[in-house]
């Protein structure tokens, strides 16, 4: 099973039980920051009379996994994108690159680490659902198999086409995410980026990176060739000069 979260904005009442559960599960300070920080991994925002959750989207082809030079991020087959703080060197490329602006830094510490929602990977590993899904009183946040949740989302869109905007956010964005969202208002008005391509972002850098072997081989051969030619030209000239000197 590939775990995923379906968040249905129309069912959310903004009670923030998910935030509290997340704080408790991960031993985070109880004070809730208004936006995602290293100490608040999920928030519920009210926008245009609708509630929307912010949390790591757990991309299928995660940008953070691809950019991290020391492989501190990993996409688990069970769905979550997890972070191993013991590998992190603190370059903050993940924070800079994430299309959803999710990874956050402990700016107040002297040796900070990156923090973000990990979909309660340890709970999933023992067959439980993430803390936020477990406590949600209205079923706005539910956990399940990604394919099944996509099916469920399609059923809801079909059953109430006037309630929802006809889009499952996360189905295709940046190659798909393991957090799917439904909404009654257009996603941009929830502050959710509408402009993401359907191709995973790591393909953009891979296009450049995959040329490295070519540069090494072609460049090496070319440079050696240039040296060989210019060097030979000098030696020929020398030899000619010597011969001329002998004759003259």
């Amino acid at each position: 099973m590939k775990g995923a979260i379906l968040f249905d904005s129309t069912k959310c009442i903004g009670c923030e039980a998910c935030v509290a559960a997340c704080k408790e599960k991960h031993d985070l300070p109880a004070a809730i920051d208004p936006k995602l920080t290293a100490y608040t991994w999920t928030v519920v925002e009210q926008r245009n009379k609708a509630f929307v959750r912010r949390l790591c989207m757990h991309c299928e082809s995660p940008t953070c996994v691809s950019v991290c030079p020391v492989e501190a991020f990993r996409k688990e087959p069970s769905g979550p994108v997890v972070y191993d703080a013991s590998r992190c060197i603190g370059c903050r490329y993940c924070i800079m690159a994430c299309p959803f602006d999710v990874p956050k830094y402990q700016w107040d510490r002297t040796t900070p680490i990156v923090q973000k929602c990990n979909m309660c990977a340890d709970r999933i590993a023992v067959g439980k659902e993430p803390a936020c899904a477990a406590v949600c009183p209205t079923g706005a946040t539910i956990f399940g198999d990604r394919d099944q949740l996509i099916g469920e989302a399609r059923v809801r869109l079909k059953a109430a086409p006037t309630t929802y905007v006809p889009h499952i956010y996360g189905l295709e964005e940046v190659g798909g995410t393991s957090v799917l969202m439904l909404s009654s208002v257009p996603f941009p008005s929830l502050g959710i980026r509408p402009d993401l391509p359907v191709t995973p972002l790591p393909t953009l850098t891979w296009k450049a990176l995959s040329k490295v072997p070519d540069v090494v081989v072609v460049g090496g051969a070319l440079l050696y060739g240039i040296w060989w030619i210019t060097n030979r030209r000098i030696r020929v000239q020398e030899a000619l000069a010597q011969e001329a000197a002998k004759k003259g």
Partner: peptide, 17 residues
């Protein structure tokens, strides 16, 4: 942020980065 771990790049590889 973790300058003492700068050497990690030598042993922990992510060729996609």
């Amino acid at each position: 942020g973790q300058p003492h771990r700068i050497w990690h790049a030598i042993v922990m590889w992510n060729p996609r980065s």
